[in-house]
Design a protein around this nucleic acid. Structure first.
Length: 547
DNA sequence: CGGGTTTGACCGGCGC
DNA sequence: GCGCCGGTCAAACCCG
């Protein structure tokens, strides 16, 4: 317990420093952005704001989460949204305060999906349920967007049944910035159980893959624009490639928030990264890193700078008409397929000419050496955040280093934990996109009822675990990181409350960057729910079992 | 009978 | 302009 308390203290300290640095950077950012925005067309700002000051506008353009929350609060209904607003403000003020709004998790659950939206602001509309949209400021905003975008969602055609009675207000999308998140995972079932409710609306044989591609749309809400495509990998039939597109415009089932939030976070990373990777800005996110986290491999190969397509065509269900980020959850051993693939992707990009892609592709591989369970869509919600942090860290320390150099160098000196954390802190605070990713991940916890856990995790790492049981929907086994339930997770993904011991474990993979575990939530509450069914009933039942 | 799936037709974008 | 291809529609079908 003493060690635990010490660790909590350290975590608090690190978090404080992160927040301080973030605030400083934020202020600098405002100073930079403010004059820049003043030069831009004022009518546009008028249309999209509701009396917010310039600072908030600037923040909205960069921080997708704050964008959605702020607007929701100011433009929409009253009480509920006031609380969203509180959360938004508090997130700006200190990020921790908003975690106290635990009881408002459902309220938060709705709007934060907006972070999938991009700087073009178009998918803001999606965050408003149809019924709330009528006559609201968002409507006029949307009308404005219609003029600007001239495009609708779905990209090709809006169903006739959705064109009437103002539904097209929901469908405005800027197709240029529509992000997709592709998830590769080993799964025997026809589709991964991501906790959401889907209805199949089509199936097609796509070129280059004998396996049919299935099209699903979200049926949790009638007007939800979210679609997903499911297709088996041509080269490895055991790998299921699920591509998500769009933003839920409704509160998600508890079991679905992790997946949705992570895909949203990934999309936000992709969009914000690509949007800030304009040629000449030098911001490039092309950091291929060899961060083996105890077998947890990931890499980020944002091709936006080189405008090249890093993924084998078989990886992508289709040529990426939209910017696509791929989360690789396949069980390929770090040292074999996944590594080879990532290396291949990184250095053999010429194999996939840029003409096949109009947008960049970003690939994140969360490969683990032992992933017997295939239904782990929730588990990587947290790891997405972890690895983003790690990636940021590596961006500073190992960016552009040859991947194999990192991988094949077992003698590579391991950073001490404090050094690593300090480096991670520095790296994290240096990247404004992380704010979105962090908030999204936190939101995923809050939204699914684990808010107490994450809130206390940051403030009091282990006290939070205990406190988590005081919340109605906490999962008991979150207090037992290596319980039977959690053992279904791949080892590399089990970071439940065991950051230090986990990190201290000798790792066969040399490139461990343990600092990322600092912000790892201690529980992965839904990751091990095994089911091939996505029905809410099933999810409820399983949740009840666990709680 | 209601809800989900199947499957051929249809549509629009894109390359040639 | 034509054909290919991805994506969607919707009637028919299936299932509990």
């Amino acid at each position: 317990m003493g060690e635990v308390r010490e660790e909590n203290q350290r975590l608090k300290t690190y978090l404080d420093s992160i927040m301080k640095e973030y605030k400083n950077l934020q202020m600098q950012f405002f100073d930079i952005v403010k004059p820049d925005r003043e030069q831009k067309k004022p009518s546009d700002d008028e249309a999209v704001t509701n009396g917010n000051d310039d600072r908030q506008q600037a923040e909205e353009s960069e921080e997708l989460v704050s964008l959605s929350l702020g607007r929701s609060a100011s433009s929409q209904l009253s009480e509920k949204d006031d609380e969203k607003n509180k959360s938004s403000i508090s997130s700006r003020e200190g990020k921790l305060l908003f975690l106290e709004n635990i009881s408002k998790e459902q309220d938060l659950g709705l709007s934060l999906d907006c972070k999938l939206s991009d700087a073009s602001r178009t998918s803001l509309v999606e965050t408003f349920p149809k019924n709330n949209n009528k006559g609201s400021p968002a409507t006029s905003f949307d009308d404005h967007q219609k003029e600007e975008a001239g495009e609708t969602w779905p990209p090709n055609k809006v169903p006739k049944t959705m064109r009437s009675d103002g539904d097209d207000e929901l469908s405005q999308q800027n197709p240029v910035k529509k992000a997709r998140v592709s998830v590769r995972a080993r799964c025997d079932a026809a589709t991964m159980n991501d906790g959401c409710q889907w209805r199949k609306y089509g199936q097609k044989i796509a070129k280059g893959n004998p396996c049919p591609r299935a099209y699903y749309r979200c049926t949790v809400a009638q007007s939800c624009p979210v679609r997903k495509q499911v297709q088996r990998c041509a080269e490895d039939m055991s790998i299921l490639i699920t591509t998500y597109e769009g933003t839920h415009n409704h509160s998600l089932p508890m079991s679905a928030t992790a997946m949705a939030s992570t895909t949203s976070a990934a999309a936000a990373m992709l969009l914000s990264g690509s949007s800030s990777s304009q040629p000449g800005q030098g911001h490039g996110t092309s950091a291929t890193t060899g961060a083996g986290l105890h077998g947890l491999n990931f890499y980020l190969s944002d091709a936006s700078r080189s405008n090249q397509y890093y993924l084998p065509s078989s990886v992508m269900p289709s040529a990426p008409t939209y910017p696509t980020i791929t989360l690789d959850l396949t069980s390929s051993n770090l040292s074999s397929a996944s590594l080879t693939s990532s290396h291949f992707n990184r250095f053999s990009s010429h194999t996939y000419p840029s003409t096949t892609s109009r947008y960049s592709s970003t690939s994140l591989s969360f490969s683990s050496p032992d992933q017997s369970d295939n239904n782990l869509p929730m588990s990587w919600a947290n790891n997405g955040l972890l690895n983003y942090a790690t990636q940021l860290q590596n961006k500073n320390h190992t960016a552009y280093q040859p991947y194999l150099h990192i991988k094949n160098n077992p003698s590579l000196p391991q950073q001490s934990l404090p050094d690593t954390i300090a480096a991670a802190t520095k790296a994290i605070t240096a990247d404004p996109n992380f704010q979105s990713a962090l908030a999204v991940a936190l939101k995923s916890i809050i939204g699914n009822g684990s808010s107490g856990t994450i809130a206390a995790t940051i403030g009091d790492h282990h006290q939070g675990i205990r406190d988590s049981n005081s919340f109605g929907q906490k999962l008991r086994w979150s207090t037992e990181p290596f319980s039977a339930a959690s053992s279904l997770l791949p080892q590399a993904l089990q970071v439940n409350g065991c950051a230090s011991s986990f990190l201290n474990k000798p790792s066969s993979t040399s490139a461990s960057q343990p600092g990322s575990f600092v912000i790892a939530p201690p529980s992965l509450p839904f990751s091990s729910l095994k089911s091939t069914s996505g029905s809410p009933k099933d999810n409820r039942d399983r949740t009840n079992l666990l709680s």
